[in-house]
Design a protein around this nucleic acid. Structure first.
Length: 489
RNA sequence: CGGGGAGUAGCUCAGCCCGGUAGAGCACACGCUUCGGGAGCGUGGGGUCGCAGGUUCAAAUCCUGUCUCCCCGACCA
């Protein structure tokens, strides 16, 4: 075997490993425009499965899809003070059109709050028109200085939900509900456990009153902000005059929320489950769940085996599981390629299960089932192979989540900790450090400056330590919150 | 924008110091033998050596300029 077929290992260089996996498993490629990314069919297939699952969850909670323009009048961006300040440096601006300079430049949306709430203002008159529960699937552009495939690209695909409510309580509840949906999706579908909670002021979305976040831990122990949900208060409704007549006959500004997840999730998936053999996909999101590799030596064997494999794939592909839909099975009948080469290729691409079918198997009315990441080969009867596959897929989905959760907990640190010990953890292995914080932004800034670690989140009760630190890690003052520190992507 | 690398075949790179017909491995195409963990042999296709100047009988190689990409920082889903 030549060395150039092998991947860089995660231990040797996590970043290099990540880039190699993304490129070689054909998820994405670099584009001619620096900072942009081409998503290839394999990567897009994963995104499509994510979209479908999320979309179902949004619909089930009363949301509807709509679409708003890519181009936004520049003046819209300046109407909300914090919003302008936050996004101005990363705006792409269109200054010419139709061969002429435009009277007012247009910005390419970095997010759509402004244009959406300007439209909401037209559509809402009475409290009876509320709530508006909208979502859009779209692309956005942010002029990032440094980019990484999927994790930070100038253009990315996402969904952004935007809602308007009659009361702040209802909006708060909505922001919380969507955070919960994100968490369910990340854990249930991606097998990626997250810590949920509230962002500190410095990490809050530009224009929000409160930002909730799902934070996941990658295999290099850095944090990934995987999804956010914002309570926008009345900041945008005041900027865009989004008013309604109340039940009592007065007028009031509406209360907004927005929430989004992006193609960054694909990067999170890679960095959560990938191994030194490449990608590992949770079955629920794998475009192909099972690949069938026929094995043969002579022509007559090939004919016999490939035909049997075709029948098997057709039978299993038609076989309706109770959940989640038809089995996504693929026959790799390419000739002139040895089975071993196919194994490596499908493992690199993260396909959860492989079914090997050879002459000896056919004679015994069986096939060999192998789980991604396991060298263990299990002979299964062709009569019940569908059940065996379904069972293995379900088990893998669970095992991936458990393994990721164990890994995260093994790299989480709790209790009263000294700032020196904290620095050592952050500089050495990294991880999530639950520590006391006096609530002072200056302390947060100091730690960021000195260690590059940031407060990822003020965790929700469920994630808080049984015995949280009572004193601020840096100043020793009484702690106002227990917070999660980590270096982040 | 600061610091560090690199531009030579589709990919990874050697050749450059010391100028003299453009190379290797992988990939690709064809043929034969192979096929239960990355096949072997043979044959073949593929390059204005990032770009522009200069020095020279002669430049991938030396000189000048310029562009691009990657990594580390400042910005962030």
């Amino acid at each position: 075997m030549s060395d150039d077929k092998k991947l860089t290992t995660r231990d040797a260089d996590f970043s290099a490993w990540y880039n190699e996996v993304v490129l070689r498993s054909e998820l994405a490629d670099y584009s001619p425009v620096r900072g942009c990314m081409v998503i290839r069919p394999h990567g897009y297939g994963i995104w499509e499965r994510m979209q479908r699952a999320l979309d179902d969850m949004f619909k089930a909670t009363g949301h509807q899809n709509a679409y708003f323009p890519l181009l936004i009048p520049q003046s819209f961006m300046t109407k909300e003070a914090e919003h302008v300040e936050g996004f101005a440096p990363e705006l792409a601006v269109v200054t010419h059109g139709g061969g002429k300079e435009l009277e007012e430049p247009l910005v390419i949306r970095p997010t759509s709050e402004t244009i959406i709430y300007s439209m909401f203002a037209k559509w809402v008159q009475s409290y009876r028109d509320l709530p508006l529960l909208y979502n859009q699937w779209a692309n956005v552009i942010r002029w990032e200085m440094r980019t990484r495939l999927f994790l930070r690209t100038m253009e990315f695909l996402w969904q952004e939900g935007h809602t308007a409510h009659a009361t702040h309580d209802e909006a708060k509840e909505e922001a919380r509900r969507m955070l919960g949906i994100y968490r369910d999706f990340m854990e249930g579908w991606m097998a990626m456990p997250v810590v949920t909670g509230v962002k500190t002021d410095s990490e809050r979305f530009a224009g929000a009153v409160k930002t909730y976040s799902c934070e996941a831990m990658m295999q290099d122990n850095r944090a990934l902000q995987a999804g956010t949900s914002h309570d926008l208060g009345q900041n945008f409704s005041k900027a865009f005059d989004l008013k309604f007549q109340t039940e009592e006959g007065g007028t009031a500004f509406a209360w907004n929320t927005s929430w989004g997840v992006s193609t960054r999730l694909i990067g999170g998936l890679v960095m959560t489950h990938g191994d030194d053999g490449g990608l590992v996909l949770p079955p629920l999101l794998a475009p192909i769940e099972v690949v069938v590799v026929p094995i043969y030596r002579k022509d007559d064997e090939r004919d016999r085996v490939v035909e049997a494999a075709r029948n098997l794939v057709q039978r299993l592909g038609d076989w309706e599981r109770r959940s989640p839909g038809r089995l996504r099975i693929h026959l790799d009948a390419r000739e002139g390629m040895k089975p071993g080469a196919k194994y490596y290729e499908w493992e690199l691409k993260g396909v959860p299960l492989r079914l090997e079918l050879g002459p000896r198997d056919l004679d015994a009315n069986q096939a060999v089932l192998v789980r991604r990441g396991s060298k263990q080969k299990v002979a299964v009867s062709l009569d019940s192979v569908g059940e065996d596959i379904a069972e293995a897929l379900a088990a893998m989905q669970q095992d991936l989540l458990s393994a990721a959760r164990e890994r995260r907990e093994a790299n989480s640190y709790r209790g009263q900790i000294s700032y020196d010990a904290f620095k050592e953890i952050i500089n050495d292995k990294g991880g999530f450090v639950y520590a006391g914080w006096n609530g002072d932004p200056a302390v947060e800034a100091q730690v960021k400056e000195e260690t590059k670690a940031t407060i990822r989140v003020i965790p929700d009760e469920e994630f808080r330590s049984a015995e949280p630190a009572t004193r601020c890690m840096v100043t020793g003052e009484r702690a106002k919150h227990e917070v999660v520190w980590a270096r982040a992507y």
